[in-house]
């Protein structure tokens, strides 16, 4: 009886943990294979433990070139998309204007359209316009599909913000620029940073749209795709594991900072709060 009640209360959590296991299984495999010395170029099975892949991650130099190129494209696309998207988010939340619903559709649609359709349609445009495919066409495409995600992320932060803080600043004779610089921007910044990180990870990991618009330029996902046919160097798993580790560190650091900032805010707002908490 007690066993069945325990089961009734906890089976959902049990299923959830199993599903999380399913989600993490490939990550564990990637991490494991990063220490593997494969028996042949086309083998995907674990063969022998080695640290060589981590010691020489750039043993296959085209791979590191591809990673570098992905970082460059990701950086450019992130900066452009974050600026464009943040400006649009401000206009949407703070201003009334004509054509708002049409604009919302234009922002929503890229998130709901299959990448395949966006990739092929851009290719059709570039080819008919005689634009040579390469680094810059990839950047253009990445900015396009990142902008919508930036708008949505910044908008969420902005509309959840307390307008009275800005009004208070203005009532205290801060100029519009000062209000923006000292009150609005610091409050929206976490949203902008989150949007930029999202944009970078979308750009860095994009394959389908890039595949159609890259010409002969090779990004990291394009490299992996090509290598899947010729045989994957184990260093690919080193990059995969390192990406996972870096992203996890960033998330942990931001949550630590968030907690610290919240504590500091409470401490300044409520004298004596630190001694209590």
């Amino acid at each position: 009886m007690r066993v069945s009640r325990w089961f009734a209360q906890h089976w959902v959590m049990g299923v959830a943990l199993l599903v999380l296991g399913y989600l993490f299984l490939p990550i564990a495999v990637v991490a494991g294979l990063s220490f593997n010395r494969p028996s042949s170029r086309l083998s995907y099975d674990f063969n022998e433990f080695t640290l060589d892949n981590w010691r020489n991650p750039c043993a296959t130099s085209d791979m590191c070139d591809a990673v570098l190129r992905s970082v460059q494209i990701g950086f450019l696309a992130t900066v452009a998309a974050t600026v464009l998207g943040t400006l649009m988010a401000f206009a949407l939340v703070r201003h009334r204007f004509r054509g708002r619903s049409g604009l919302n559709v234009l922002i929503f649609l890229p998130m709901a359209t299959p990448e395949l359709v966006m990739g092929t349609s851009l290719l059709a445009l570039f080819v008919s316009g005689g634009v040579p495919l390469g680094f810059w066409t990839i950047v253009i495409a990445h900015v396009m599909f990142c902008v919508s995600f930036v708008v949505v992320t910044v908008k969420a932060r902005l509309s959840g913000m307390d307008r009275r803080l800005e009004e208070a600043a203005m009532d205290l004779y801060a100029s519009e620029w000062q209000t923006f610089r000292r009150v609005t921007l610091p409050l929206v910044l976490p949203g902008i940073v989150a949007a930029a990180l999202l944009a970078f990870s979308l750009s860095f990991d994009d394959f389908i749209i890039t595949n159609f618009n890259s010409g002969t330029t090779v990004t990291f996902p394009m490299y992996v795709w090509g290598a899947a046919q010729r045989g994957i160097p184990p260093q690919v798993n080193v990059i995969g594991t390192a990406m996972f580790g870096i992203a996890l560190l960033l998330v942990l650091a931001s949550s630590m900072r968030g907690r610290k900032a919240r504590r500091a805010a409470i401490a300044t707002a409520v004298p004596g709060a630190t001694s209590r908490s």
Binding site: A16, L20, L23, F24, I27, L33, Y44, V251
Partner: peptide, 29 residues
């Protein structure tokens, strides 16, 4: 929050690299 991060975390590794990992998991050997 920890569990939520666990849901997102697998996406930190490249889509293609994760899919190739399934090739290892499902392999005949």
């Amino acid at each position: 929050n920890l569990l939520l991060v666990c849901v997102i975390a697998p996406m930190f590794t490249s889509f293609l690299v994760r899919t190739l990992a399934w090739k290892t998991i499902l392999s005949d050997n």
